[in-house]
Write a protein that binds this DNA or RNA. Structure first.
Lengths: 191, 191
DNA sequence: ATAACTTGCGTCATTCATGTTGCAAGTCAT
DNA sequence: ATGACTTGCAACATGAATGACGCAAGTTAT
């Protein structure tokens, strides 16, 4: 997909800029390019060299996050692994990405068709997984799958705000999300 | 609270501007004042006459929405009505406000202490209501009340995106929110 | 080692949003 | 009806963000 492999130099710079953009813009979506450059430890002109315009940077940020999102779901093998396992693994993986790239994933008006395509793909995978969960008897067959998916996204979004560090904490978070999704507030599940 | 009662003229203009700001900014938070003025059907200078700066307008918008939010919860008598009734009524009322003032309520970095105070008040009312629901046996006593409240907010936020018109639709939405909150995805409650 | 590339810095042009003011015409309250 | 207030319009001032250059110094790959 990349006809010309980037120089090691360049790649480091691009990554630094994207990470800085996530950090700065999540605090203030209207932050000027200069703040992003400063946070990335580069000159403002360098940002403009890598990303022609502010819009291009935002767009690239969205595409980058969408890619990580897609990888996170793929890694859970939602179409082949046992559905309850896949749901748990996908939750953990997506939580990780969302904690680090929350702005780029959520508060971004991504009008890019390429990004929309990835999100549609993930949505389709999510819905297939829910159907598999229904077949396994984990979800009632009369459940509204669209509402289910929206609640699932919303719970992940909410949980990611806690932004814990350790693996154990993220496991606990994922467990809580799935518990709440399937059984609502109340006693934790004893499976 | 208002030492000088506004002229009928002025009040209409102010309301039109606030409503336009909600509409325009929810579509594009960085929209220039001119777009807001246009949407309100007034000249740009008039907006500046009523609100000294952009920041002042945003702040007033947040304060206005916070007020409606507070009224919505108050009207449900959360401290005196039977807790399940209060929960339902508060959900319906807040959904109404949130549908019309979603931007001002949610996507607003309200640093104003006055607004923060109102939100804190509502949060306290919400938590008292949850305790009453625990006492009534509707919520397990081992529930994490903070997580519960955050999920409740998130579900209302998500439900409000459907933005239905009729009373019946909002009733259905509130029922779904509470059902999901208490029992998770699955068969609807048969109370 | 060398050729190609990248970066930082200073500089400049341009565009755009914001905020202000004065005045004529219209609206409101009493 | 009258005095006070509000609005639209046009014009102006200002500041900030964006984006583009060229050049000297440093880095990378082969």
């Amino acid at each position: 997909m990349n006809p010309k492999p980037l120089r090691a130099d360049t790649e480091r710079t691009v990554r630094a800029i994207l990470e800085a953009a996530e950090r700065v813009l999540s605090a203030n979506p209207a932050a000027p390019m200069e703040q992003i450059a400063e946070a990335a430890g580069v000159a403002r002109t360098t940002v403009h060299r890598r990303f022609a315009s502010r819009e291009a940077l935002i767009s690239a940020l969205g595409a980058w996050a969408a890619q990580r999102f897609h990888e996170a779901v793929e890694a859970a093998r939602p179409d082949t692994a046992p559905p309850t396992v896949a749901l748990y693994q996908a939750t953990v993986n997506v939580l990780r990405v969302k904690i680090g790239w929350g702005f780029a994933m959520g508060a971004l008006p991504s009008d890019a068709p390429e990004v929309a395509r990835v999100h549609d793909d993930v949505r389709a995978q999510c819905e297939r997984l829910f159907v598999r969960l229904q077949d396994a008897g984990e979800i009632p067959t009369n459940a509204d799958l669209d509402w289910l998916r929206r609640v699932y996204y919303a719970l992940i979004h909410e949980a990611a705000l806690e932004a814990p560090e350790g693996d154990a904490a993220i496991d606990a978070l994922a467990t809580r999300v799935i518990d709440t999704l399937l059984h609502g507030i109340g006693a934790s599940q004893n499976s």
